[in-house]
Design a protein around this nucleic acid. Sequence first.
DNA 1: CGCCATCTCTGACTAAAGTCAGAGATATGC
DNA 2: GCATATCTCTGACTTTAGTCAGAGATGGCG
Lengths: 290, 290
Amino acid sequence: MLDPVSRVRRFNRAVTSAVGALDTSFLGRGRPLGAARVLNAIGHGRSDVAEIRDYLGLDSGLMSRLLRNLEDEGLVETNAHEDDARRRVATLTRAGRREFAAYEALSNTQAEGFLAQHSQREALLAAMDMIASALTRERVTLDEMDPRSEEARYCLGEYYAELGRRFEQGFDVSLSRDPDAKDMRRPRGTFIVAISDTLPIGCVGLKGTDHGYAEIKRLWAAPAARGLRLGRRLMDAAEDAARGLGIKLLRLDTNSALAEAGQLYRRSGWSEIPRFNDDPYPDLFFEKHL
Amino acid sequence: MLDPVSRVRRFNRAVTSAVGALDTSFLGRGRPLGAARVLNAIGHGRSDVAEIRDYLGLDSGLMSRLLRNLEDEGLVETNAHEDDARRRVATLTRAGRREFAAYEALSNTQAEGFLAQHSQREALLAAMDMIASALTRERVTLDEMDPRSEEARYCLGEYYAELGRRFEQGFDVSLSRDPDAKDMRRPRGTFIVAISDTLPIGCVGLKGTDHGYAEIKRLWAAPAARGLRLGRRLMDAAEDAARGLGIKLLRLDTNSALAEAGQLYRRSGWSEIPRFNDDPYPDLFFEKHL
DNA sequence: CGCCATCTCTGACTAAAGTCAGAGATATGC
DNA sequence: GCATATCTCTGACTTTAGTCAGAGATGGCG
């Protein structure tokens, strides 16, 4: 009945009218949409005026006026930037935080209402995650982070859970050779997290060793991010980091149950080698000269 | 990391900015968005001015002016309605059709571009279908249609395909008692299709018999529509139609592999009865007095 | 036919968004 | 230290969207 393009366009129509409804609901607080958007951007932690302008795609004149209105309402204060007095930094006043909280409550109620009328929540949420990731694809950032950071630990948790589902015998971290966090910090290695609009959707670790090579560990892409070629991007970033650290040889181990991963390695210049450790889980071993 | 509400809101953010981009791309043709929307509504077959106004949520004055602009551009012609000279009917001129085609091409290119950058098309499309159905939930219409109509045949095809996947031994329509189309037309019975923005997403047949009861057949809800309680709505509509036809007793057969269906029947007043036909596929039989 | 309802159109507004040029303050590089 | 770039702000617009009241034409119905 419907070809792929028509399906995308049906989605676009549905979403366009939903976004319209969402926007008009923000008008209920007696403030034009532009001002409400600026207030919310500040509330969500964007303080640098130029950054907000950029994020919302506003002209500098318009932005300035919207800020002025919010100041007149007593919701926002602006000050010069600490390091650069040309820039301005906006913060919410007490009243501004109250007003922002009201918008937040509105948004939350709406989201809850949408979920409540659906009886297959998890499937719906997974679909939303997938689409959100696909739509924000170009804005995914790959950030080096501490392997003990909240984001990194979240990724690792999801990664272990996935291994548990994919391996017939399950997966128990304590049996695996859990890399020491300090081996995945500079200068020995690094840990990279892919972030899509505050949500971690993938990671990879570069673990330094004392054996003349570094290892790639914990390559993971969230189910919602499959299809975005995130694995490839993460591997490229890890290899770049390795080159930057002067590393000449990389190794990794994996399991043949993770077919996509194996394919990715083979396609990007890795070659299979004999087992080089005694970890019980992996059954495939690769290396790559940089 | 993320609770359900945050996930919905992440989706909202992603989609809001995507819709913004989509809208502004329509501005490329030198026409304000309002006029472009009217042109496209006409191009998509909405000709009655009041209907367009209603669909786009426009004030009558605004609508009138937008139409006038399109007429001045030579893209649209309006005439009195055949049966009611107060109403106006808008049609595209030759130039209007060209312009509409340009907008269509733009939309299609965008949709294709979005799909092209993703390597898991079918999963992505399924997610979009699901969300589009959830968002347009209140606008789903249940229409009585001929069981030989294109929409009905599409639904039945999907239904059979699903049975093929769900039954261990597969499903072959020719072995099943394929109901005669005329038994699912008034006055013997009916066939109801659920339509969400032109896409059929579910169906149910009411099949008249000469044995003192009618049968419910072919209850189907598209995978993308699961969770919308569409099965319940379709059954209610079928029962209402049966009552309208003076039918006092309904029967149906189903298979225990279709667990949700069985649950639905039990929860809505149906009681299990012994086998009443020799169809090889069903293993569960129900009836309900109206 | 007359009355009232319905539909479209016009005039006269307002509000919001967006544009553009230039001024003033501050940073940066040579 | 000076020229140049960057950032914000103001004034002076324009465009788009939307609102409201009322006029004019037509339809439905007793």
